[in-house]
């Protein structure tokens, strides 16, 4: 238990953080009553950091990610991405911000089944109204090891390959923050390694920021910091933990 700090951590770096969560809470209203998915989360994600978010099922990990990415509005509190407060942004401004500054990778690969791999990757550029540069797209595909699969359709690829296409699609716009929710949840260990290595590379080489939700200690060990979420609150963190240490901390948390 020594690895888990008693209170939420302060920023390890002094430079302006890539993403700031300031006291966000989220209450889902439903017929059965309200669910407090987040109960006051404050955290600064440093630029170029790779942060894993772990916690028991239902602890609010996905909600945290969705609020951070502006996909959902927190009930209270502020989300500031690259110096821009997301609250008060209109739908179009938010979309443009998402298009330029954020990349998404989810458990379900979320590719458009009717488009080829090439077109899937080029899609975010097309949406901005630019003509995608063929070499850029092929370059990104090369980077994720799929240079030879550009003409295939998603259904003709393995799960790991599809996930790498999704990463390529997120990389193409050179976003400042990656949001990944269980990106390896449906993959075998070999494919998982490739996907995690790509995310790691994004922070190391391009200085991009990665926020990754996972329940797998091995995956979390790719991050330099693991945040533990419990019952809608940050319960602690662990820096540069090994999979064993992370697993031990998790089982403490679940006790």
């Amino acid at each position: 238990m020594t690895a888990i700090a008693p209170s939420y951590p302060s920023t390890p770096q002094a430079s302006a953080p890539a993403l700031v969560l300031d006291g966000i809470t989220k209450t889902y209203r439903s017929k059965a009553g309200g669910v407090d998915a987040l109960r006051g989360v404050t955290y600064h994600f440093p630029r170029g950091s790779f942060t894993a978010v772990m916690g028991p099922s239902g602890s609010g990990k996905s909600t945290l990610l969705q609020c951070a990415a502006g996909l959902d509005q927190p009930s209270t509190g502020a989300v500031v991405l690259g110096g821009v407060n997301l609250r008060g942004l209109g739908e179009v401004a938010l979309t443009k911000l998402r298009r330029e500054e954020m990349g998404f990778v989810f458990q379900a690969y979320n590719l458009l089944p009717s488009l080829t791999v090439f077109d899937n990757v080029a899609l975010p550029l097309r949406l901005t109204g630019k003509r995608p540069n063929r070499n850029d797209v092929l370059g990104v595909l090369e980077q994720v090891g799929l240079g030879d699969k550009a003409k295939r359709r998603p259904a003709e690829l393995s799960g790991g390959q599809q996930q790498r296409v999704a990463i390529a699609r997120a990389l193409i716009t050179r976003p400042s923050v990656f949001f990944a929710d269980e990106p390896t949840g449906a993959l075998d260990s070999n494919s998982s390694r490739q996907v995690l290595a790509l995310l790691r590379e994004a922070t190391d080489r391009a200085g991009q920021t990665v926020v990754m939700v996972t329940h797998d200690p091995v995956a979390a060990a790719y991050a330099e910091r693991v945040l533990f979420l419990s019952d809608g609150l940050i319960a602690g963190h662990l820096d540069r933990g090994t999979p064993g240490q992370i697993a031990a901390a998790m089982s403490d948390l679940e006790r």
Partner: peptide, 15 residues
């Protein structure tokens, strides 16, 4: 879902 995905990767409501 498909339209939501397009929105997610940057399509505006108008698009």
């Amino acid at each position: 879902r498909e339209l939501g995905l397009l929105r997610l990767i940057g399509a505006t409501p108008q698009q």
